[in-house]
Design a protein around this nucleic acid. Structure first.
Length: 458
DNA sequence: CGCTTTTGACCTGCGC
DNA sequence: GCGCAGGTCAAAAGCG
């Protein structure tokens, strides 16, 4: 209830924020975030199934956000355009085999678009969106759970720090690339720019990051209408809070993304997720909710979990999108080393827990604490959806095309488990070896070694 | 030996 | 057309 009060206050304070709960009482909303790609072989099936699912959701006034393989950008095109244009190279196994071919296709499409509708071009699935992540990191690169191969390095103009180019090597045909460059103003800040979508199964850790970047990219593409207007080409609209309008049929719902900016100065639309703690305003916002060390970014979607549980808890607030810590992690990381466990002070949700327990350093939470926290979450449909998204990103293949329902069943089961004083179900096992600290990692990758045994032990 | 990194050359897009 | 800058290629070198 305190959390809801804060949310309500924030909603009043900001003219462009997430829909209030009052809205939701009038129109029960379901925001289904399908995070992560669990099986590349299902891509086409999923794409085909999306309309069916959405059709079934229409009755619930639901909002289905197709992310990653369920990216629904082509739906924004007319049927003729969709059939005339090639499928998104980011979502098609066949289309990404030849990078050069892809370039030629894009070029051909751009030529074909001469004199055409600019909006159509902007929303073209072939136009890659980039997601730039700013993270405070002392290591050469950020450990995002994927395997990368460096294929180039350049000194970019205006920045003495070289820009490194990496290519995903998990799958030979994976089109995903990233650029890593130090911020010229603050070399402790690492700017990682992701481009493309993985066309192969990802580890949980990689899925977390990939889902986030993909979500931002898909929102950027699907919400391209906001990129127009006075702040269009060759400008960067640095938005303290950014509204993403995710259109589903005739309905649009805003998403509020602070510390974000959209740039269309380059040939690619780029969204920047600032995960550094530089935003004092956001910090102060969070400070009202709990004690956040300045080191940790006052951010958004948070893939952290309870201390006593491996199950990730995703907090989705109107204050933020994504919260990654920046502590080093093992280079061995590899794609399987992951613990959804972050700094205990990182999240709004955990802050709330801390208020309850008055003991932030507590390693295990009492069942009633979990129950209270779960109650707080389940009262908020947005929280519930975000939690479902996190579960889907882990469980992934366990769901069907109607993953939302399936995941929500899991959520319901989680509720029941809590009600019966049972901790959250433990998912998977995580390697405990963390050595060779050379890379920093998202916060949710932390602590895989020392605490995994106790986690699994309950 | 296989994989990764380095680095100069090359390609492409864009502005003048 | 030219130059610049970003991005990519690929041979050579490095590394385990």
């Amino acid at each position: 209830m305190q959390y809801r009060d804060v949310i309500a206050q924030e909603a009043k304070r900001s003219p462009t924020t997430v829909p209030t709960h009052q809205d939701q009482t009038e129109e029960p909303e379901l925001i289904a975030l399908s995070l992560g790609r669990t099986s590349s072989g299902k891509i086409r099936d999923e794409r085909n199934k999306v309309p069916t699912v959405e059709k079934s959701d229409e009755g619930n006034e639901g909002l289905a956000l197709g992310l990653d393989c369920k990216l629904d950008v082509p739906k924004m095109l007319s049927q003729a355009e969709t059939t005339s244009l090639n499928p998104s190279p980011e979502n098609s196994l066949e289309e990404v085999k030849e990078e050069g071919e892809e370039k030629r296709k894009n070029k051909a499409m751009n030529n074909a678009g001469d004199g055409g509708d600019d909006e159509v071009l902007q929303q073209s699935p072939a136009k890659r969106a980039r997601v730039s992540v700013r993270v405070r990191c002392d290591t050469p690169t950020m450990n995002d759970g994927c395997q990368w191969r460096k294929y180039g390095q350049k000194i970019a103009k205006g920045n003495p720090c070289p820009r490194a180019y990496y290519r995903c090597t998990v799958a030979s045909s994976c089109p995903v690339r990233k650029q890593v460059q130090r911020c010229v103003e603050d070399t402790s800040i690492l700017i990682t720019t992701y481009e493309g979508t993985h066309n192969h199964p990802l580890s949980v850790s990689a899925t977390a990051m990939a889902s986030t970047t993909s979500a931002a990219a898909s929102m950027l593409l699907s919400g391209s209408s906001m990129s127009g207007g006075p702040s269009s080409s060759s400008t960067t609209s640095n938005l303290n809070g950014l509204n993403f309008y995710l259109s589903e049929n005739s309905r649009s719902r805003p998403f509020y993304l602070p510390n974000s900016s959209i740039s269309s100065s380059s040939s690619y639309p780029t969204i920047t997720l600032d995960l550094t703690a530089s935003s004092s305003s956001s910090s102060s916002q969070l400070s009202r909710l709990g004690n956040f060390p300045p080191r940790y970014p006052p951010t958004n979607l948070n893939f952290s979990s309870l201390q006593s549980s491996v199950l990730p808890i995703v907090s989705w607030s109107n204050n933020a999108i994504l919260s990654y810590g920046t502590q080093p992690c093992s280079k061995n990381q590899s794609t399987t080393s992951l613990s959804f466990q972050a700094n205990p002070n990182e999240t709004l949700y955990q802050s709330y827990l801390q208020k309850i327990t008055m003991n932030p350093n507590q390693q295990t939470l009492a069942p009633d604490t979990i129950a209270a926290a779960t109650k707080a979450i389940t009262l908020d449909p947005s929280f519930q959806s975000a939690l479902a998204a996190a579960l889907s990103s882990i469980i992934g293949s366990g769901g069907t095309n109607n993953s939302t329902t399936g995941v929500q069943n899991v959520v319901e089961k989680s509720k029941k488990s809590v009600k019966s004083s049972d901790p959250f179900p433990t998912l998977s096992s995580f390697p405990s070896s963390t050595t060779n600290v050379k890379k920093c990692s998202p916060g949710f990758l932390e602590k895989s070694s020392s605490s995994s045994s106790s986690q699994l032990g309950g």
